[in-house]
């Protein structure tokens, strides 16, 4: 069953078509990758799914339900979370507080409970701290849980970014180049985390990545964008044989396993 169906999606910036009639779907429980050269429209696609951009036409269905009219914050409540390409963490806050913000919609305390604290809010903080600790353990961030994220090195910030998205306990996680700028050891760690969140927690992963080795290894299905157009959609084997994809990537990088 498809968890996410994108149909004929178009997005314009002035005269520029950032996305042009793009269609594909993501199966529940798979690792899906969206690839394409820089400026192809990958991040714009995620912005449409998260609700930050409003497409000019088309449809996006999550679990069979149209979400295009929904506000970004309501889409989060459906179980869609996102890690940004350009780290968008709350730099002054600790790793813990960033992850707790990732669980914002799972928590309930309002301004009265929060202000009185010892009534219900404390209990809530403690129980959600437990869920957050699972993410911290999963991503091996025990040593930095109290560190303000702004002071962390880039690679760890990328990891916290993914952690904050995981903290929601999402059904669908959108990962925008989670390995960009990482060294190969860090990349390997991240690839392992992605496989584990998918296998252990059953999360559907929507991955944007440039490293073809990683993409071909991890993905169940791949869609390829070029200048806003979908030029390929299928299994890794199909994508590697797709002449249009090969042409688009020629001169940029080889499509290899």
């Amino acid at each position: 069953m498809a968890i996410l169906e994108v149909n004929d999606l178009s997005l314009k910036f002035g005269g520029v078509k950032a996305l042009d009639q793009v269609s594909y779907h993501v199966e529940k429980g798979e690792i899906f990758s969206l690839i394409g050269p820089n400026g192809a429209g990958k991040t714009s696609m995620l912005n449409c799914i998260s609700g930050l951009y409003t497409p000019s036409s088309g449809s996006i269905k999550f679990k069979g339900k149209e979400i295009l009219g929904m506000k970004p914050y309501n889409r989060t409540s459906l179980g869609i979370s996102r890690a940004f390409q350009n780290i968008a963490l709350f730099a002054h806050m600790s790793v813990l507080d960033n992850l707790k913000l990732g669980r914002h919609v799972r928590m309930k305390s309002g301004m009265f409970k929060g202000g009185m604290y010892w009534g219900g809010a404390e209990k809530e903080e403690v129980s959600h701290r437990r869920s957050v600790e699972q993410v911290i353990e999963f991503l091996e961030m025990q040593d930095i849980r109290h560190t303000p994220v702004g002071t962390l090195p880039y690679g760890l910030q990328k990891r916290v970014e993914v952690g904050r998205a995981l903290a929601l306990e999402p059904e669908l996680i959108l990962l925008d180049e989670p390995m960009a700028g990482m060294n190969s050891a860090e990349k390997e760690d991240m690839a392992r985390f992605i496989l584990d969140m998918h296998e252990l927690n059953g999360i559907t992963v929507f991955l944007i990545e440039h490293d073809m080795g990683v993409i071909m290894d991890l993905s169940d299905h791949i869609a390829v964008l070029d200048f806003g157009k979908r030029i390929g959609f299928g299994t890794p084997e199909e994508i590697q044989k797709n002449p249009e994809v090969i042409r688009a990537y020629l001169g940029e990088q080889e499509v290899t396993t």
């Binding site: 970004p72 914050y73 709350f90």
Partner: peptide
């Protein structure tokens, strides 16, 4: 700190 990221956390600005 970041109103765009806040929205993605599910916060209605």
């Amino acid at each position: 700190d970041r109103d765009v990221a806040a929205q993605i956390m599910g916060i209605n600005l």
